[in-house]
């Protein structure tokens, strides 16, 4: 990575995450080495229980009880206080969840404005920013709806708008289309793809091989380790990450956009 223009956003070295103690002890993440450059769109695939979501939680600083090294923006997170971690979540990371995770008591615009509260913005500024963000997701006329008045696809777009509202460096999406039908899925993926084109770094966990077509890099995981790591689309400023592991096969989904829905 010496020849990259910008330092990598995320560097993981021998990352391990252990659950349980004694006999029940097992590693959900068992020695992950991974370097993620700015502007990558990574799809993480793998069977259930392979550690995808755990990895995402670790990357999102929701889980900091780890072994090994995690450098975010060149700084190790090991010595960050809980408060600093919260600030990083607030300013650098945007989460998108499978189950949307909108606060049901708050209307759409308040949900989108939620991360801005913890940035210390005034109410007016929050509402303005959230409103702009919603309009860019074509949800401008839904601002004052409650989450339960929206369709799944709309809810996920609200969630993405919320993830983006504080201009995060990294967007972490945990099966963002897992609860959506295929049409809504592709709309959401289109949105993520657009974000990627605008230069955002996106790390997405998915079960659906079709969706990897949007990604620039596909990682498959197995038993807490990276199984394959495939670069799919050329990135202008990208040099290969230093482990060209076993780029054996492209996942099935590499039948490219064949399955693009009508």
């Amino acid at each position: 990575m010496s020849d990259t223009k910008t330092p990598p956003v995320i560097v993981l070295k021998q990352l391990k995450k252990r659950f349980g103690i004694g006999d029940a002890e097992h590693y959900a993440l068992d020695g992950i080495n991974l370097t993620i450059q700015k502007g990558e769109f990574i799809a993480i695939m793998g069977p259930s229980g392979c550690g995808k979501t755990t990895l995402l939680n670790v990357l999102g600083l929701l889980d900091s009880h780890i072994e090994g090294e995690y450098e975010l923006d060149g700084k190790s997170i090991a010595y960050l206080s809980a408060k600093r971690q919260a600030r990083i979540r607030s300013q650098q990371i945007g989460f998108v969840f499978q189950s949307f995770n909108l606060v049901s008591r708050l209307n759409v615009i308040d949900n989108v404005a939620l991360p801005l509260i913890y940035k210390g913005m005034t109410k007016l500024a929050r509402q303005k920013k959230a409103s702009t963000m919603l309009r860019s997701f074509h949800l401008g006329e839904r601002e004052f709806y409650m989450p339960n008045q929206l369709s799944g696809g709309q809810m996920q777009r609200v969630a993405i708008a919320r993830a983006l509202v504080n201009d995060p460096a990294i967007i972490l999406a945990d099966e963002p289309t897992g609860n959506l039908d295929s049409r809504a899925s592709h709309i959401i993926m289109q949105e993520l793809s657009d974000l990627h084109k605008q230069g955002n770094t996106i790390i997405m966990v998915t079960h659906n091989p079709d969706l990897t077509t949007y990604a620039s890099r596909v990682i498959t995981m197995l038993d807490g380790q990276i199984d394959t790591d495939t670069f799919r689309l050329p990135l202008q400023s990208r040099t290969s990450t230093k482990k060209p592991l076993n780029i054996v096969k492209k996942p099935k989904a590499s039948t490219t956009k064949k399955k693009d829905k009508k």
Partner: peptide, 16 residues
């Protein structure tokens, strides 16, 4: 509980 989780994920500190 879930709202707390969401808020924390979105950047709320413990003291928040």
């Amino acid at each position: 509980t879930r709202e707390i989780g969401i808020r924390k994920a979105l950047g709320a500190t413990n003291s928040d």
